[in-house]
Design a protein around this nucleic acid. Sequence first.
DNA 1: AACAGTAGCAACCGCCCCCAG
DNA 2: GCTGGGGGCGGTTGCTACTGT
Length: 479
Amino acid sequence: MARTVSNNDDETAAKEEGEVKDGVRKGPWTPEEDAILMEYVKKHGEGNWNSVQKNSGLLRCGKSCRLRWANHLRPNLKKGAFSPEEEQVIIDLHSKLGNKWARMAAQLPGRTDNEIKNFWNTRMKRRQRAGLPIYPPEVHAEANAYHLQHHRYLEQQQPPPYSSSSFSLLLSSCYPKKLNDPNQIHHHSSANPMQNQPDHSADRSINPSQQFKFSNENSTGNNGNFAFPMSPLSPYGSSSSTLLNHSFGGDHGGFIAGSPYEQPFPLVQGSTTDISSNQTPTPASSYASGVDGLMGASSMVNNNNNNNDYYEVAPLSPHQGNSGLLDALVMEAQGLYHNEKSRSEEDLNLAGKLSCKRKNMEYAEEGGTVPAGVSAMKKNSGNSSNESQRDDDISSSQLSKGKKQIGEDPLEEMNGMDDDLVSLLNQFPLEMPMPEWYRRGENQSLGLENQPKASSPDPADHEHAWTLGTCWNNMPRIC
DNA sequence: AACAGTAGCAACCGCCCCCAG
DNA sequence: GCTGGGGGCGGTTGCTACTGT
C-alpha cells in the first residue's frame, strides 16, 4: 500500500522533524542526528549516554542514543534478512534460552536483540496462524534433552550447570503435554502456537498453552512415564518433567541437522522409547570430557529411574569468544556446582511440594484420585515458612558476601516468586476449552503430534510432516 | 488502475532490574 | 540505602509491501 500521506502539511512536517517534548525529541532519527551521534561516539566512545545531549546538542535522551547506536549505528551491524544459518541458530538458541534476545544476539555477530526479537515474533505469528509448532522437531528434541539434562541434575541432587536466568528461560520452550500419557512420550505434542511464551511457561498453569485440558490424559504412572511431579516453580521443575514426557521424540537424535554447529548431543534412553537406534549411542563421557564452553560442567548422568537409563551430555555452546555472557554462564555453572549441593535436597522438597499441588489439581481435573505417592510427597514436602526462611538465609548469606555472586542460586530467584505463583496456580482455571487449532492438530497431519505412536515410528512420515506438511523449509523467507 | 485491507517489519517506548558510586 | 547509568525485554506504533476487490 502506498504510504499514507497526511493531508495536514504541518502535521507531516512535525512528524518528520520528530516530536520535541521537554527538550527531548522522539520519533525517527534523522540522518543528521545519526551523524551527530556517530561523531560523538567517535570522539568519546560508547557509554555515558546521558551526556550525549549535553555535549553534542542532540535532542535525544541517553537511552534513545544508546539504542540508536546499538541497533543501527554501531559498526559491524548486519542489515538485511537473516541467513538460513542465522535462522537456524536463532531457532536453536531460542529452544534453549527462550526470549533471551540479548544472549541470542551475543551469539549472532552483527545482529541485535531487537532484530532477533522482531524476527522471532514475526515467525511466531506466522506459524501461529498456520497452526504449526514453533520448533522443528530436531531442534525441539535437542532442547528437550538440554532441559532434561538439567532435570537429571536435580534428581541426582547435583547442581545443574545452568544459570538461573538461562534456565528459567529454557523452560519456555515446552510443548503442551498430555500429562501421564505414556504414548505422549513419542509425540511432539503440540501445534500450539502459544507454546513459547516467555519465562512463565515453566509452569503448566502459567503457560497459557498448558492450561488446556487435553483429552486422554492418563493418570497411570506405572510405566516410567509418569509425569514427573516437579515444581512449576523450580527451575528444574515441571518443564523438565514435561519435557521428560516428550523428550525422546523417537526418530530424532541429538543433532541439529543443518545446524551451523552440528553438535553431537547424545541422548540415549534405555527402554521406553528407543531413540538409540536412530543415532549412534556414543558414550556420553567421550563428549563430556572433551568439551567446554557454555556447559563447562557438562557431565554424564545416569539415571535408573523407572527402568529408563538416560545418558546425557549437555549441549554445548559452539559459539565462544563473542560474548562475555557466555563466560558468565560458565562461571555461573561453576559457582552453582560448588554452592548448591547443600541446598538441593531442600529444593527438591519444595519442588515436590508445589508440583504435587499441581499434580493434585490435574488429578482432580481428570476426576481421578490422587495417588498415594503424590499425597505423600505433599505431606513430606516441608512447609513454606521453612522454605522462606531458607531463602532468606541464602539471600542474607549472599548479601553478607557483598555483591551477588555469579552462580547464585537459581532456585532463590524462582522461589522468590513462590507466593505469587502458587496464588496464580490456585486461580487458574483447571479446564479450558480445547482450542480449535489443537483439535485440528489432533486429527490432521500437520505436526508431529499426529505421528504414529513411537512404538513404530515412521521416519519417512515424520520427514514428510516437516518437509511437506509443516513446510518448515518451504516457509517464505524473512525479508 | 485505484483503492482498501492486511501482514511484515523497523523502530521506539516504558517498565523493570542490576550494578556501581 | 539511595541514585543514576546501563541493559533487557515486552509491547506498541507506524511505515512498507503485498494482495484482493
